[in-house]
Design a protein around this nucleic acid. Sequence first.
DNA 1: TTTCAACACGAAAACGTTTGCGTTGCCCAA
DNA 2: TTGGGCAACGCAAACGTTTTCGTGTTGAAA
Lengths: 350, 350
Amino acid sequence: MKRKITLKQIAKELDVSISTVSKALRNSVEISEDTRQKVQAFAKLYNYRPNNIALSLKNRKTKTIGIIIPEIVHYFFSKVITGIELVANKRGYNVIVGLSNESFDKEVINMQMLANGSIDGFILSISKETLQQQDYHHFLETINQGMPIVMFDRVVNEIPCDKVIVDDVKGAKKAVEKLVSSGCKNIAIITTKDYVSVGKLRTQGYLEALEDHKIHPEASMILKIEDKLLSDDDLDKLEAEIEQLFKSNKSIDGIFAVNELYAVTAIKVARKLGLEIPKSLQVVSFTDGVLSKHSTPSLTTVSQHGQEIGEKAADLLINRLEMDEDNEEEEETFETVVIETNLIERESTK
Amino acid sequence: MKRKITLKQIAKELDVSISTVSKALRNSVEISEDTRQKVQAFAKLYNYRPNNIALSLKNRKTKTIGIIIPEIVHYFFSKVITGIELVANKRGYNVIVGLSNESFDKEVINMQMLANGSIDGFILSISKETLQQQDYHHFLETINQGMPIVMFDRVVNEIPCDKVIVDDVKGAKKAVEKLVSSGCKNIAIITTKDYVSVGKLRTQGYLEALEDHKIHPEASMILKIEDKLLSDDDLDKLEAEIEQLFKSNKSIDGIFAVNELYAVTAIKVARKLGLEIPKSLQVVSFTDGVLSKHSTPSLTTVSQHGQEIGEKAADLLINRLEMDEDNEEEEETFETVVIETNLIERESTK
DNA sequence: TTTCAACACGAAAACGTTTGCGTTGCCCAA
DNA sequence: TTGGGCAACGCAAACGTTTTCGTGTTGAAA
């Protein structure tokens, strides 16, 4: 077991100075052809690679991006990571992942762990708890210390940073309009409580779409789920709430669900109640994940293009990191990129 | 925008030496009560945190674990990451993720990027391409340089490292036995080509289970899918192959699929052919993911306990890292932990 | 022979820590 | 007054790089 070889060791072996070795490896003109070749041969033989940590310390940048997301076992988030990793790697960056697990404290802790020099910037999506408490001091502090942040999906406007979002309102409108144009007269929505920003926006899109078609929204057709307790165990509770929705609104012929799980669960309940999909009930969901594609019937969904979001976020962050090098303190102007959603029609609608 | 404060700056402000500041912050007895308090107050005021990179360089360890997995958009792998992250964080480690995307080259590149000082050890699952080429030199080199590796799920025996696996053979046997005991007489298997180690093992379990019940396996009942091309686009191809399986074996009344996707696809095809689940066809799959739980009918599956695998892998790695500190070169003995699978019965079986 | 440029290389600082050890200054005992 | 001892602090090395600025040697021109 030989430890990784260093410049110092090469220097000693070849009886030259450390600086000579370093220069030889970087093909400096200061070094004679002779020694350059000797050093390079030796380095290759021993498989020398510069120590990343030492470089990070010297250059005061780590070429590493920190990602903080609420949860990784989630099609959308893992797609985003895929996108981030793709462009990060392409541009010479690594990716270090922290999970907030939807908890405010873990989000703060994780950011502190990474902000102490381990990374150059953050890409993150805010945890539900943080959104609920509306305490954003950790983001502001991080930014104040000169570390850029790019937020995606779950964002808040008051933070000065680049953002990548989908147009949730518009996406929801597309979904509802699809239901309307397919003949639905009584469209219900299954959504989250309003503190989840994307849930709120999708609800808004639902309302706007109805208004556009002169349909009066009924409070009883809007089911807001408290998703704090929504682990797999609480599935029964979810089913019960949805069943209640159907039972108190017998005329429902269309469902817009703000995520896949709500959609498949609604379908399950509807079937139990004797409804046929898409004949007597049509369903559209948000988030084009594995369930939408592979469940039966497959779901018509609004695709968020998670990977694209990740790619864009990474590009924004790296651009900012590498811009800082040249014109420090040029202008602080932040961008909000909106990724277009599109509707993927499958079997759950006519 | 104030940059992160350093010991040097504190020292200058308070007109003491750097070492005094450092010692004061670490509550050294060498420092008087007076200055200690002064320094600590100042540090708290300016929110001082030691620079991680500098610490890493000094201590020659980064407290960071590198994860290399073939793909992150995959229920099992993201569960494993969740587990790793959980215990890593608990034990003061960070987690840096590289995706091989099932490619040999990306696996090698990624490992090289991380092995240059960025991390203390690896947790990884081998890419399919690597398994196919059987070229493991990059693993051996990494280990030779003193960097420990823990492999999980997709492992190869010839690498000297700790491993965490599920007993694929046994799990598969459980699955097939369930089908047998539920009355299936003609059980087919949908699996992968043999170079995917877990596919091979599960096939073996299938064969053993049949043998145990004196059932002669028929070659025509074993469908081996070439999954190299299995992106979402190739779904049609998969369906066609499965349809062929059913058509040439009309008597099939049980299916064991080595993953969820094969299972739900089989169900889809079967339904199209007029089979009822679980009345005329029962299905068991491997990997207890989101599809198994939420598709209709829900799937009876063999659960792999991905999170547990991740937790165990992280514990093994960190144990080894922290053992090295004390008794360097004690003994090189590696462990292979087998995580028990269990069968989760749902609607796709009687 | 002297001078000077070109060439090839080395010394040292810097990035931010921690820590062993040396160095003050002071007090008290002899 | 002197010496010892202790409390409180600073120096410097080390981790592995890169880079700026010397510095010594050579050869050729004057």
